[in-house]
């Protein structure tokens, strides 16, 4: 009541959030349900979504999805043991290791990806090392492998952090209790550790899957442009083809996929930190 004088501060924000956050999404939604009519007017249509169902675009979607799944799976495969090892480290080491894990995420995504171009080039460092050992150099750059490496590289910390937070919450006592009851280490892992880390696994999966699905920088730089993902398709529609209607429907589809995954995550796990997603 007495604070009335500064209460006006909420109105500019309501206006701002409406104009720059809400309305843009409405515009995109509107574009996705319209096509350019004969006289240049926009006409309501489901054509954009129908068009998406054609084999060419479904192939792009499936390629994006497969690649996202692959990189998520590799991140999980590499990240799970890493997270497990970190939880077993002495306390004073743990924070340093976690910090070291986070630092690369602070660095510009674009530059992190570009760095791999230097490493993977035909006359790059990796081939130099191979040749040093007498092995033949390979064509790494502009292949699916390069895109995959780039994604795993960029998203691995997003997998390790939620896994770590889930695993570190499993009490030592639980494990000791299980061992006390006669379980060997493998059984303890399968019956105690693994089930309790499920929320972390799910959080990690979404946190890698979401950016992997929407990525377009990695594929553009390491895939050399011939490797089209849904993100590249959106970029192309907006910047080169100029079909904003189709581009918008692609964006909406992507958002729906991501929202569904997030809803799934919040169903499974309310505790695991999603904040890692804010770090870059």
């Amino acid at each position: 009541m007495k604070r009335a004088d500064v209460n006006f501060l909420q109105y500019p924000y309501i206006l701002w959030a409406g104009l720059f956050i809400f309305i843009p999404l409405v515009i995109v939604l509107w574009y996705s349900f319209t096509v350019a009519g004969a006289d240049g007017d926009a006409v309501f249509s489901l054509e954009n979504y129908e068009r998406f169902l054609s084999p060419v675009y479904m192939q792009v979607l499936s390629r994006s999805a497969v690649l996202a799944v692959k990189s998520t799976f590799i991140c999980l495969l590499i990240g799970y043991p890493a997270a497990l090892i970190i939880t077993r480290l002495p306390r004073m080491w743990r924070n340093t290791i976690l910090l070291l894990l986070v630092i690369p995420m602070w660095i510009n995504f674009l530059l992190r990806t570009y760095a791999w171009m230097v490493l993977l080039g035909r006359r790059g460092v990796l081939n130099r090392i191979l040749e040093f050992f007498g092995l033949p150099g390979q064509e790494w750059l502009y292949t699916e492998t390069a895109v995959l490496i780039g994604m795993v590289y960029n998203f691995l910390p997003f997998m390790v952090l939620p896994l770590y937070s889930a695993l570190s919450r499993i009490g030592k006592e639980t494990i000791e209790a299980a061992e006390d009851l006669g379980a060997n280490r493998f059984v303890v892992f399968r019956r105690v550790v693994l089930p309790q880390s499920v929320p972390g696994v799910i959080a990690g999966i979404t946190m890698v899957f979401m950016p992997a699905v929407s990525a377009f920088v990695v594929s553009a730089l390491l895939g050399g442009g011939q490797y089209m993902l849904i993100g590249n398709l959106i970029e192309q529609q907006f910047l080169y083809v100029g079909d904003w209607h189709f581009g918008s429907s692609l964006s909406i589809i992507m958002m729906v996929v991501i929202l569904l995954t997030m809803a799934l995550v919040s169903l499974y796990d309310k505790g695991a930190s999603l904040e890692g997603g804010n770090l870059w």
Partner: peptide, 19 residues
């Protein structure tokens, strides 16, 4: 407020471009 934080950058980018 969290929409631009959680949305993929590409969606934020094209939606602002459209705006």
């Amino acid at each position: 407020n969290n929409v631009p934080v959680l949305n993929p950058d590409i969606v934020t980018g094209i939606s602002l471009m459209a705006l």
